[in-house]
Structure formats: structure tokens, C-alpha cells
């Protein structure tokens, strides 16, 4: 069940990496080769094995107190914006969200 160029184009679209035709070919063969290399993962009997997402033993419930700027990390506006390619006044600036007639779901300013 090898990945096709179309599959890879969809993945690249999702990952927001524009690929030209040559890159798309290269990435397609790379991904298929890499996935082949991953097959050992599927060869073990893993029934009932608990996954380890964090290699930290029993460490849990790590939290910080609700104290404003306890570590003096707040950034001055010039530092906050200093590495940005486009700003306006005190804000970061991006081009139009929607192109002509393009439908994009992210119309809300809120996360949900």
C-alpha cells in the first residue's frame, strides 16, 4: 500500500510545505522507503503493552503557581516583534486569510 504522489501532495498541503514536481517525486520515494523501514514496529505482539509517551518514570502533576511574571520572562514590545517579518504598530501582520473565493474554516478568532 505505497503512498502515491497525490497522497504525498495532500500531506505536504497539510504540513504547509510547498513542493515542486521534482521534490514531490523525491519525497514520494523517500516516504515509501522510510515507511518500509518502520515495519518492525508492527511485528511485535503488543497486546496489553502500555505506551510510554514520556520517559520520565513516575514524574507527574508538574505545575507552576499562579504568579505573574515570576520568572521575568515578559518580552518588551520591540523584542516581541523584533524577529517578525511584518508588523503594524504593536501587532504582527499577515496577508489576507482568504484568497479570492477561497473558503477557509477559520473565520473565528476563537479556538474551539
Amino acid at each position: 500500500m505505497a503512498l502515491t504522489r497525490e497522497d504525498v501532495r495532500d500531506i505536504a498541503d497539510y504540513a504547509r510545505i510547498a513542493l515542486d514536481k521534482r521534490e514531490l517525486d523525491e519525497m514520494t520515494s523517500y516516504l515509501n522507503e522510510a515507511i518500509e523501514m518502520l515495519q518492525p514496529i508492527r511485528e511485535y505482539d503488543l497486546a496489553g503493552v502500555v505506551p510510554t509517551y514520556h520517559p520520565i518514570g513516575d514524574l507527574c502533576n508538574v505545575m507552576a503557581p499562579d504568579e505573574p511574571d515570576a520568572h521575568g520572562r515578559a518580552l518588551a514590545i520591540d523584542v516581541a516583534l523584533g524577529n517578525a517579518g511584518a508588523t503594524r504598530d504593536r501587532a504582527f501582520r499577515v496577508p489576507s486569510i482568504l484568497g479570492n473565493g477561497e473558503v477557509d474554516g477559520r473565520c473565528q478568532t476563537s479556538a474551539s
Binding site: 503493552v49 505506551p51 510510554t52
Partner: peptide, 8 residues
């Protein structure tokens, strides 16, 4: 499964 293998 990779994270399960990690446990192993």
C-alpha cells in the same frame, strides 16, 4: 505501537 515498543 512505537510508544508501546518504547515500553518494551
Amino acid at each position: 505501537p512505537a510508544q508501546q515498543v518504547r515500553t518494551l
